[in-house]
């Protein structure tokens, strides 16, 4: 994909069961990384490595054809979890409207 950054290869937990797909296309609407594409009435994973496991596609799939272990890719949260701290409170600071704001609580990255 042009002009977008990609993270590590072959790591996403995104999985598609094409037999369950009814081709509604909702996943292609909600994916913010253009990972999925509708072809011949079925969804296909076209940019697997662009997936950031946000979980929007699986959440909005009415037939549970898509599965992903959703989470936030944040080193501070992983460290906190590993240390047994309650603060996997990590949130990104990118607002839904595309802008940023200091909205994180204590223990946040």
């Amino acid at each position: 994909m042009a002009n977008t950054l990609t993270y590590l290869k072959n790591v996403t937990t995104l999985a598609l069961d094409a037999d369950l797909c009814v081709g509604c296309g909702m996943c292609t609407v909600v994916c913010p990384r253009a990972v999925l594409s509708l072809k011949n009435g079925k969804v296909e994973i076209v940019e697997r490595d662009a997936c950031m496991e946000c979980g929007a596609c699986a959440q909005n799939c009415p037939t549970r054809a898509l599965k992903v272990d959703a989470g936030v890719g944040c080193a501070a949260a992983v460290i906190n979890t590993a240390l047994g701290r309650s603060g996997d409170e990590c949130c990104c600071v990118v607002d839904a409207n595309g802008k940023t704001g200091p909205v994180c609580g204590p223990g946040c990255c």
């Binding site: 790591v11 989470g71 944040c74």
Partner: peptide
């Protein structure tokens, strides 16, 4: 730099775990 994975908006949890 690794901490910036949290602020960036294209990193996945599985990816961060593997990196770490």
């Amino acid at each position: 730099a690794m901490n910036f994975t949290g602020a960036s908006d294209y990193t996945s949890l599985s990816g961060v775990r593997r990196e770490m």
